[in-house]
Computed example of a mutant assay.
Amino acid sequence: MKLTKLLTTAAIALGLATGAMAESHGGKTKVGFVFVGPVGDGGWTYEHNKGRLAVEAEFGDKVETVFVENVPEGPDAERVMTQMALDGAKLIFTTSFGYMDPTLNVAKKFPKVKFEHATGYKRDTNVSTYSARFYEGRAVQGTIAGHLTKSNIVGYIGSYPIPEVIRGINSAYIHAKKVNPDVQFKIVWAYTWFDPAKEADAAKVLIEQGADVILQHTDSTAPQAAAQAAGNVYTFGQASDMAEYGPMPRVSSIIDNWAPYYIARTKAVMDGTWESVDTWDGIGKGMVGIGEISSAVPADVKAEALALKDAIASGAYAPFTGPLKKQDGSDWLADGETADDGTLAGMNFYVEGIEGTIPN
């Protein structure tokens, strides 16, 4: 535990080393980013950091950005945010679900600082929330997965059993089942956002259980590498394109595009128009992208997946459209009925056909 604290303190010192300098550069707006993983993870944090770099490119010497990576969710996060605020940050993005309560706690101490929390649901006068409708991308992935599997077993690596992850599992399953009635999902919970060893082990377990397609809601490329080593296993990039593993095993991806949001919210702080809002955008507004579908996917399957993407983007189709039942067989959505955002935001159940229970 002492080592963890020392490492966290060192990370704060490194990430905020430019803090004192900011005060001497009059007129600059300092923007802070708190990252749960390393900026080189090739997934979630990598894309958030691309958004940070886009802010620098957009505003040049009018802004200064600082960041700390590998910040555990909990008290360490609160210390990092506090230090950023003390060092003059006017806007702080906290980029993981487990930062929600620490963000609110620190925001109360610094009412003049604006905070933006990713994937959470609690706001305050100086705290906004933002997330992407990743489940829209999962619908596209599920469609491809249902077509590609020969064993009829699709593996899914879950991070934590929170609504965001459960939505993704349900969406992928619904759409895999539509194109392949015999498909089964096997789910392994890694209980981490970023741990390459655990993620690789989860992928290997799923492959041993017969999965020949693997989806993931964890941040590293380790499942891609495990699938590549196994051979004849399809995967999908998570949060970032992970195209270095294409055309096999990675056949497509969900890409998180945070740059436009980060630029807009930074500009709002700079011009004094920032307000506390809740943003939840998807494919249509470009916050969720679908990576190139590789040559390993048959042309007709690719066409079907892209048509689904376009229908979601235009609003012609919603991934959670009835008739749908819950796992226990009870009715959920009637024929043609679509799920409301409140239900989706708090989703804590599997849809009918998924085996197993959701951990507490």
Rank of each mutant, 00 (worst) to 15 (best):
T103P: 07
G98E: 12
F134N: 07
F115K: 09
G74Q: 11
S131E: 03
H117S: 13
T125V: 12
S131T: 13
P102G: 08
S128E: 02
K90I: 03
L91Q: 02
G74Y: 06
Y135W: 10
M100Y: 01
S128H: 00
K90Q: 15
M81D: 06
E73K: 01
P75F: 04
K109R: 15
I92R: 05
D87N: 13
T125F: 04
T94N: 10
S128V: 00
F134K: 01
L91C: 06
P75L: 04
F115I: 03
T125K: 15
P75G: 06
P75W: 02
T129C: 12
L104T: 02
M84C: 02
K122R: 14
V80R: 03
A85E: 05
Y121R: 14
V106G: 12
R79G: 04
R123S: 04
R123C: 05
L86N: 14
E136Y: 01
R123Q: 14
K108Y: 12
T129R: 05
I92D: 01
Y121G: 03
E78S: 15
G98C: 08
G88I: 03
V80C: 07
A85Q: 08
Y130H: 10
K90C: 00
P72D: 05
N126G: 09
K90G: 14
N70D: 13
V113P: 02
T119E: 13
A77C: 15
V106S: 06
